[in-house]
Computed example of a mutant assay.
Amino acid sequence: MPDSRLDVPPLDLSAGSVELTRALCDIESVSGNEKPIADAIEAALAGSAHLEVLRHGNTVVARTRLGRERRVIIAGHIDTVPLNNNLPTRFETVDGRDYLWGRGTVDMKAGVAVQLKLAAEIIDPSVDVTWMWYDNEEVASEVNGLRLLAEERPDLFVGDFAILGEPTRGDIEGGCNGTLRVNLTTSGLRAHSARSWVGDNAIHKAAPILDILAAHEPRTIEVDGLAYREGLNAVGISGGIAGNVIPDECVVQVNYRFAPDKSAADAEAEVRALFDGFDVTVTDAADGARPGLDAPIAREFLAAVGGTALPKYGWTDVARFSALGIPAVNYGPGDPLKAHADDERVALDEITGCENALRTWLTGGRD
């Protein structure tokens, strides 16, 4: 495992996007330890005369100021989830396809590598571009670098369209589902388990909650032409004092992934109605984002990249752009099913494919 206390080798933005992906991944940057990689990115961009480079904490921003009629924001996070013996990176071939294996290859340093290379090389884009590489995406929202940047520098979030480099296998995934987490708490009365009739078992009282969840059939809801599959699931349960005590409390943690046709407040109302009579406490909530593909610039991007737009089921930071009135999509290399996996790996042809498609669009097809 690389030691983040050592000096980080400088990034060579003239290298190929595959090699740059490997260099970025081999800079360990688990959430909270992004300073070395942010330093490396800032230093690599410092000599780009066509870019204004800004730093906010461990978030790096680079933007063109060419006076174009339209501006696009292209963003990616530079942190990863914790390691599990999956650094340094290595190349491997699986079923005849070449991959780069290791933490961060999918989520989402391959996307960041593509963005950095294009930011450095495209000096005359057809639109003005604001590039953002931010920290703490994988952890609590209150420390998310994109959120903090928006609060401190709202002027940087003026744009006509946004692209987030989350892994999508090189497809375009519009918008995202929202997410709501609640605790459902049942109460009882403690007693010795040898005399259980004296008490009131709170864990047993949770059975109807689990019955409701088991019987629930997730809906698929069409929003602006894309079909978003919802999900309502128990993601945790806690209760019990000791092996000989009837528990007086049980908490079932429930996560609702809801389609972007409704707000987080709407989703909360649905959950409260479904679990009427139970103690419901909201612990986390975030609105989703509508696809945003009806904007002319979004349609141009879809036509240039090709393929069919898909829905994004997980929550991503496109929701932050959507909340600011900026249509946004997810687009990047890597299979999202491999994000956070111990065998995380990205196909090399997806990295170069995304680079070529994004380059074509940003240059208007010019060589």
Score class of each variant (00 low, 15 high):
Glu217Thr: 11
Leu189Glu: 15
Gly239Asn: 02
Gly314Pro: 10
Asn84Asp: 14
Ala286Lys: 13
Phe278Glu: 10
Ile351Phe: 05
Arg219Ser: 12
Phe258Cys: 04
Gly243Thr: 09
Asn84Val: 12
Pro311Glu: 07
Asp160Gln: 05
Val251Gln: 08
Asp98Leu: 07
Pro218Gly: 02
Leu11Met: 01
Trp133Arg: 04
Ala15Tyr: 01
Phe278Lys: 09
Pro336Leu: 02
Met1Arg: 07
Arg299Val: 12
Asp155Lys: 14
Asn85Phe: 14
Leu83Trp: 08
Ala341Lys: 00
Lys35Glu: 13
Val158Thr: 14
Ala357Glu: 09
Thr179Ile: 12
Arg195Pro: 10
Val251Ile: 14
Ala285Ser: 14
Asn244Tyr: 13
Ile203Met: 06
Val280Ser: 01
Gly76Pro: 06
Asn356His: 15
Val61Leu: 01
Pro336Ala: 03
Thr64Tyr: 04
Ala191Phe: 07
Val223Asp: 10
Trp315Ala: 11
Ser4Cys: 13
Ser48Asp: 15
Val280Trp: 04
Leu156His: 06
Ala49Ile: 02
Ala140Asp: 14
Thr220Glu: 13
Pro167Ala: 00
Tyr228Ser: 02
Arg320Cys: 12
Ala113Glu: 00
Leu310Ile: 05
Gly288Gln: 06
Asp342Glu: 14
Gly353Ile: 09
Val282Glu: 11
Pro82Gly: 00
Leu226Tyr: 07
Pro333Met: 04
Leu146Tyr: 07
Leu54Pro: 07
Arg22Leu: 05
Ala43Gln: 09
Pro125Arg: 01
Val252Thr: 00
Asp335Glu: 03
Leu148Ser: 02
Thr105Gln: 03
Ala206Arg: 10
Leu54Met: 09
Leu358His: 13
Val143Arg: 15
Asn33Lys: 14
Gly240His: 04
Thr220Cys: 07
Leu293Tyr: 10
Ser263Asn: 07
Glu222Asp: 12
Ile212Asp: 03
Arg63Ser: 04
